[in-house]
Amino acid sequence: MSHVISVNLANPHPNPAKSGVGTTGIDKRPVDHPVEVRAPGPNYGGLGSGLVGDGVFDRQNHGGDDQAVYAYSRENLDLWQRDLGRTLTNGMFGENLTTSGVDVEAALIGEHWRVGAAGPLLEVSVPRIPCATFASWLDERRWVRTFTERALPGTYLRVLEPGEVRAGDRITVEYRPEHDLTVGKCFRALTIEPELLPLLLDIEALPGVARELARKRTAAAILAPAPFTPAAD
């Protein structure tokens, strides 16, 4: 059964990777109580996270309606745990929802998830792109490149209908769009397989910034073809 293993909220601490921000909420810890989920509004002037009690401190790059909730599967954490030779607890990748039985990377952009029998309705919006804060937090050499090449990014979700979530809630897919742009394919297009970028241009469920980035990179490739590689760690 596809379900939520844990609901995780931020444990804020100093962020050495971004001095201009000062604090990070990437260290998320499981909680043993229901958590209210609602649309947080815009990056600036909004509530940051979609989960009450969570914290988003780098509002330029994180939070807001398009990144209201971050989901990552326990199955993928287990793969990384094996590869890295270290324990990875639920929430350690900064995810709000640690899931089980969900092939997150196979989810379609714009897919709707109902969490719990009468919980929130969430929409798959865009894959997570690794950043310096993530690399600093895990303290793994060349982590951004390693994470990118593995292409198991997890996904951000929008909040279409508010509600409460808790550990054990079932995840039910209530709607799948007709296109075939998955989270995994979208991530690879934005990072290591630019030839896939044209697939992003007409997907309305993608955030506007992602579609605009795809448009610019596609146009640039037509004018001056060149391989795209992820930023150096």
Rank of each mutant, 00 (worst) to 15 (best):
L200E: 01
G168H: 00
L88I: 15
E140L: 10
W113L: 05
R211K: 13
T98L: 08
V102A: 12
A106G: 13
A167F: 06
L200S: 00
N90S: 06
I192P: 01
L196N: 06
E164H: 03
G94Y: 08
V173S: 14
G119N: 04
A117R: 14
V104L: 10
W143S: 03
L152G: 07
E105Y: 04
P198A: 07
G208P: 03
T172F: 00
E212V: 02
I109R: 05
L121Q: 13
R142S: 12
L181E: 04
L196G: 00
E178F: 09
G208F: 11
V159R: 09
G94I: 05
L213V: 03
P198L: 04
G154A: 04
A214P: 10
E123N: 08
R128N: 13
L213H: 11
D103F: 01
T133R: 02
P153V: 11
E178K: 08
A189H: 01
R145L: 05
R141P: 12
G110I: 04
R211Q: 05
M92T: 13
V115H: 10
T89K: 10
E111C: 11
I192M: 10
R142D: 15
L213D: 03
I109L: 11
P162W: 00
R176Q: 11
P127T: 11
S136C: 08
R176M: 13
V159L: 13
L88N: 10
P130A: 01
N90D: 15
I203V: 14
W137T: 07
V102N: 05
A118D: 15
N90R: 13
R166C: 10
R188A: 09
E123L: 06
N96A: 05
G119P: 12
A214K: 08
T191H: 03
A214F: 07
P207H: 00
M92V: 13
Y175V: 05
G101W: 13
R158N: 09
G94P: 12
R150S: 05
L196E: 12
G163N: 09
T182L: 13
V104M: 05
P177N: 02
Y175C: 09
L160Y: 04
G154D: 02
P162E: 02
I171N: 07
L197P: 09
T182D: 03
L200T: 02
I203E: 02
S125E: 14
R145V: 04
A107C: 09
V173D: 07
P162T: 07
R150W: 14
E193R: 02
A189M: 08
A118M: 14
S100I: 06
V165R: 10
L97P: 14
G116I: 05
Y156G: 00
E123K: 10
L152N: 06
C186H: 01
E105Q: 15
K185E: 11
V102G: 07
E123C: 04
G168Y: 01
T191P: 07
G101C: 11
P153W: 07
N96S: 09
R142K: 14
V183E: 07
W137C: 05
G119Y: 01
L138S: 03
E140S: 01
A106M: 08
L122S: 07
E123F: 11
N90T: 11
P127K: 12
E95V: 03
E212D: 13
F134D: 09
V102D: 10
D169W: 05
L157F: 01
G94D: 11
V183G: 03
I109Q: 03
W143Q: 12
A107T: 12
R158T: 08
D139W: 10
T146H: 15
L108K: 11
P177G: 05
G184C: 05
R145M: 06
A107F: 03
